[in-house]
């Protein structure tokens, strides 16, 4: 991914973009969006399992983020770890969507049944496509907390400190959730074929 830059900010070293936002650089908001919108979309897409809803969530998350940055002092902005902060904002947006019942996530079902709507890279065929769709299907069967933790760890590549910052959960809790989530995913993917067949 866009890894290195975002990762630096996860670990608390000064994020050059945070400093530029603090200083008022009018090119900085665009860079913030360009740097993070794809990964935030992906995360929201995993959690909401609906493409337009994920797009809306990204819009709303950035609006909330910019509104907050407008209220903060320059000093506070300059010290921010932007990446986990954005993940935290979009998680709240997603939770609101869940709470409103707009996107009640069904526990069973193959979420990717809709095919092209989710922005599949063209040219992917057969077994390949099946494999990653199975992964998304299996992710959808994890508990909410496990799904959040596993997505942040393995799809978004956040370190545990970043996951903790993005969720508000203690780091050890995040580690446990990821470990158990991965274990369950493994089981679902290797042994869950019956279960899968059953819902198809």
């Amino acid at each position: 991914m866009d890894g290195e830059l975002g990762r630096e900010s996860d670990l608390g070293s000064p994020d050059p973009l945070a400093l530029r936002l603090a200083g008022g650089d009018p090119a900085a908001p665009r860079e913030l969006v360009e740097r993070h919108h794809a990964e935030l979309y992906r995360y929201a897409r995993i959690l909401l399992r609906d493409t337009p809803a994920a797009e809306d969530a990204v819009q709303e998350a950035f609006s909330k983020a910019f509104a907050a940055l407008g209220r903060y002092s320059g000093e506070r902005i300059g010290a921010m770890r932007l990446r986990p902060w954005l993940y935290r904002i979009i998680l709240n947006v997603v939770r609101n969507a869940w709470r409103d019942g707009r996107f009640e996530v069904p526990v069973a079902g193959t979420p990717e049944g809709g095919g092209g709507r989710c922005g599949v890279v063209p040219g992917v065929t057969g077994a390949d496509e099946e494999a990653w769709m199975d992964v998304l299907w299996a992710l959808g069967r994890l508990s909410e907390r496990q799904r959040v933790a596993v997505s942040l760890r393995y799809l978004e590549d956040l370190p545990y400190a970043g996951i903790s910052a993005a969720t508000g959960w203690p780091e050890n809790t995040c580690k446990t959730l990821v470990r158990r989530g991965i274990g369950r995913l493994g089981a679902l993917l290797s042994d869950g074929s019956d279960e899968k067949e059953a819902v198809r």
Binding site: I46, V120, V135
Partner: peptide
């Protein structure tokens, strides 16, 4: 678990806006 992680990374690269 490593294979699962690999599959997740693969899934991630395919979910683009």
């Amino acid at each position: 678990d490593g294979r699962v992680a690999g599959l997740l990374g693969d899934a991630a690269s395919r979910l683009t806006p």
